[in-house]
Amino acid sequence: MTNPVPEYPLVEVRHVSKHFGEGETRVDALRDVSLEVHPGHVVALLGPSGSGKTTLLNVIGCILEPSTGWLSLDGEVVYDGRWLRSDLRKLRLEKVGFIFQFHNLLPFLNSTDNVAVVLSLAGFDTAESKRRAVELLDYLEVGHRKDAMPAKLSGGEAQRVAIARALANRPRIILADEPTAALDSQRAGIVMDLLRKVATEQQAAILAVTHDEKIFDRFDHIFHLRDGRLDGNEGSGA
């Protein structure tokens, strides 16, 4: 890797625990998890079903409040025993892009508008939003499907539109929950290449949950989760 040495990690998780329920029904989904993801890195989150991967992603995306711990995004401490910002949705809009296992495109908007909606939420006017949306679709090689409705897209196309949406606002943190699970290995490879391209060109941090052994070699680092705990780390990261 030729990435410049970053000054600070884009994602920094320290001693985060999360449990659901109390007493008999208590589930410890995360136990004392600490990790960092640096700009330009693509890292994987691996673990059996129920090990806490989605929970961790939701915590980092400020969708789920941790039980204890400390979280910093892009140099800003957002959680320290409590949320330090009240406008978490605005925080997400500014800093975080999500890619879902199922594309979750808005069914009533065509490809362009599914991407443009994020830009118009961020304050761009309609024309500029659409222009940038089409640009992004081209970048992700689905420009030819810019007027298609989600129901008419193939799985791979829909996932690339969803990635375009996640990238639209140029977030520096991209969280992906099994982004390639619904794709064949060739399509999965293309998606991974794209994520790599974004990480390199935009100095973004990408954290992807995956089961997909075929693509393990494409990550800078792999975090293993087991019963909510991080195992010994591999690779070149943190």
Binding site: I63, R89, R92, L93, F98, N104, F108, V117, L121, A122
Partner: peptide
């Protein structure tokens, strides 16, 4: 689901 998605991508309550 669409509303959850909108929230996730940062749409304010107003929207």
């Amino acid at each position: 689901r669409e509303i959850a998605t909108l929230k996730l991508i940062g749409a304010p309550d107003r929207t």
